Amino acid sequence: MDYSILGWVVIGLIAGALAKWLSPGKDPGGLIVTILIGVAGGLLGGFLANFIGLGTGGHIWNLVLATAGAVLLLWIYRMIKNRSA
């Protein structure tokens, strides 16, 4: 198992909580979907951190990128769900 992916999943859980805190409001999918979006944002942030050369975890910038990715994905998810409602 690649431990950097596991690390990004853990970072994603933290990022999901931070994203929810930074963008309050009613989420169409509830807590589980928000957590999954946080994990996806963490993986997206990890990919971007590797791509721009920030490493594979353990830096504050990685958490910032993961949180930004989670906020972005949460925003996109809300936009899509609100349009269909």
Rank of each mutant, 00 (worst) to 15 (best):
G16F: 09
S23T: 15
I14C: 04
F47T: 02
F47G: 07
A15M: 05
A85R: 10
V39N: 01
A17C: 09
T56H: 04
V39P: 00
S4I: 10
T56V: 14
I5N: 02
I80A: 09
V9T: 00
L18G: 07
A40W: 03
I14A: 01
K20S: 15
Y3Q: 13
L22T: 06
I14R: 00
N82T: 12
A17L: 15
T34F: 05
M79A: 15
Y77H: 11
L22C: 12
I76D: 01
A66P: 08
T56L: 09
W8T: 10
K26G: 11
G41E: 02
L54P: 07
V10T: 00
L63K: 00
G12H: 03
K20E: 06
L31V: 15
A15R: 00
G69V: 02
P28G: 09
G41R: 03
I52D: 09
L73A: 12
N50Q: 12
S84Y: 14
G57M: 09
A66I: 06
V10I: 13
R78A: 15
G41Q: 00
G58V: 11
L63V: 15
V64W: 05
V71C: 04
A85M: 05
L65A: 04
M79G: 08
I5M: 01
K81E: 09
K20V: 15
L43M: 00
I14T: 00
S4K: 11
K26Q: 10
A17W: 14
N82P: 07
S84H: 09
G25T: 10
H59F: 08
W21M: 14
N62Y: 05
G53K: 06
N50H: 08
P28T: 13
L31D: 07
L44I: 08
L54K: 07
D27R: 01
A85L: 12
T67P: 00
L44K: 02
M79P: 02
L18I: 15
K81L: 10
A40S: 08
A68K: 11
P28Y: 12
L22I: 11
L13M: 02
G69L: 11
I76S: 08
A15H: 12
G16L: 04
P28S: 14
L22R: 03
G45F: 00
A19R: 01
G53W: 12
W75M: 04
D2Q: 12
I32D: 08
I32R: 02
T56W: 05
W21D: 13
R83C: 07
G12L: 03
V64D: 04
V33D: 05
G41Y: 00
P28V: 06
L63G: 14
V33W: 10
F47P: 03
